[in-house]
Amino acid sequence: MTVVPITWYLILGAILFTIGAVGVLIRRNVIVIFMSIELMLNAVNLVFVAFSRQLHSMDGQVAVFFVMTVAAAEAAVGLAVIIAMFRNRETINADELSLLRW
């Protein structure tokens, strides 16, 4: 059985990351934007784990551990913000949330 070289995993991670980035840039629904960010984080996790396997080091997986924790915290706070915004403005359309406009 041939081995899957690490580059394949990295390319896959890059593709997932790019898809997530595109999602952040083109969707207007703030929650979907948020989800795209989670996608990006997961792509990074994949890369971490791949390298951890390649280099036979546990540090990569420990990093993934922290990434997950932070992502959880970030999701909680972010969603709370979205709820607060929705209460004030009745909208979660990113285009309409532009108070900092000139």
Partner: peptide
């Protein structure tokens, strides 16, 4: 990045 030796 090296070959996939580590992976194998």
């Amino acid at each position: 990045l090296g070959s996939g030796t580590g992976m194998g």
